[in-house]
């Protein structure tokens, strides 16, 4: 049981994501005022808050439907590049999930991979451009490798979360090549990318949810 993600667990993941975003909103906005336009925390709080409201309103059905609803909610409530990119992430996850009420480890990995590929396709960013891809890409790679090495799901998502954190921190010395931070040129170096920071929170929330489920 612990090696799959139920509908309940997916919802817990999203609740935890929203909670962590709220807790760290000031930090996200601070990162964004250094190299962007000082609204990433505010926008993500609004978007994840809308997701929580949607879930509390009784989002049931299949994993596909749940993830699609989350994606559409983020698209319509976050705004900016983050809204369409986070929205695309969940929409693509949903499109690439089986029609059922849970995801096993390999299905979760495939869905997350599709989500990240969707973000790359929509935003045309690659690793090293100082964007959310710098956290997400190593996370799904670590998840895939850990599962391939025979690790259990909770250890694999923990490895993914660690990779996301490392990826987030790797953005600090980088010069941004995409998004609003890129206008700063060399002056964008020396700051963590806010999108990579919120993406690391997303993966950490998944690891915490799966870890908690295992402990019970």
């Amino acid at each position: 049981m612990s090696d799959s993600l139920t509908m309940d667990a997916i919802q817990q993941w999203l609740h935890r994501f929203a909670l962590e975003i709220t807790t760290q909103a000031d930090w996200l906005t601070e990162l964004d005022s250094a190299i962007g336009d000082a609204d990433h925390g505010t926008n993500m709080v609004r978007g994840t808050g809308a997701v929580v409201a949607k879930l509390n309103g009784g989002a049931t059905g299949t994993v596909q439907e749940l993830l699609k609803a989350v994606g559409m909610t983020l698209v319509s409530s976050v705004g900016g590049a983050s809204g369409s990119l986070y929205g695309t992430f969940f929409l693509e996850m949903g499109r690439n999930s089986p029609s059922g009420e849970q995801l096993n480890a390999s299905e979760l990995e495939k869905a997350l991979r599709a989500g990240v590929d969707g973000v790359v396709a929509r935003g045309h960013a690659a690793v090293g451009d100082k964007t959310m891809v710098d956290a997400l890409e190593p996370a799904v790679t670590a998840l895939y490798q850990s599962l391939a090495n025979g690790l259990r799901l909770h250890d694999s998502v923990a490895a993914a979360a660690a990779a996301a954190t490392t990826g987030r921190d790797s953005t600090e010395p980088l010069v941004a090549r995409k998004g609003r931070a890129s206008y700063l040129g060399e002056r964008s170096a020396g700051h963590i990318d806010p999108g990579a920071a919120s993406s690391a929170i997303l993966v950490a929330a998944l690891a915490a949810t799966v870890g908690e489920g295992t402990a019970q």
Binding site: T42, N43, V75, S76, G80, G83, S84
Partner: peptide, 12 residues
């Protein structure tokens, strides 16, 4: 109209 300095959304 999007939020301040934030683009409008596709549904809008």
């Amino acid at each position: 109209a999007g939020e301040i300095f934030t683009s409008p959304t596709p549904d809008q």
